[in-house]
């Protein structure tokens, strides 16, 4: 599998990353390197082996249905570049 520049541009767009045109080639090369390693892993015969969700023997921890968090709007908004009346403000997005 090999990524071309157009695919890298699309991946960047999906992550809302602005990638300068001259960097596309190099990024494609790096990503292709990663995909190469994954292809190598896929050569291992895993027939009859169940997918592994975690290497630890733990199980998913469940919480009780109790409100233990929130009520701290000033902390939640502390890093926001812009805010008003307790809201985050972002450039207008209308669909």
């Amino acid at each position: 599998m090999s990524l071309d520049k157009a695919t890298v541009r699309k991946i960047g767009f999906l992550a809302r990353l602005e990638i300068p045109e001259e960097d596309l080639e190099g990024l494609a090369h790096e990503l292709n390197g990663i995909l190469g390693w994954v292809e190598q892993l896929q050569q291992v015969n895993t027939e009859g082996v169940a997918p592994l969700a975690s290497v630890s023997e733990t199980r998913l921890y469940w919480r009780d249905d109790v409100v233990t968090d929130g009520a701290m709007p000033e902390k939640v908004l502390a890093n926001a570049p812009d805010g008003l009346d307790g809201y985050f403000l972002v450039p207008k997005v209308v669909e």
Partner: peptide, 20 residues
């Protein structure tokens, strides 16, 4: 009472960003 993966309130309404 609480959200699916956090302990914040799942109640409708409230002042903005207070159930977060």
């Amino acid at each position: 009472a609480a959200k699916l993966f956090s302990g914040a309130s799942a109640t409708f309404g409230g002042d903005p960003n207070t159930h977060v």
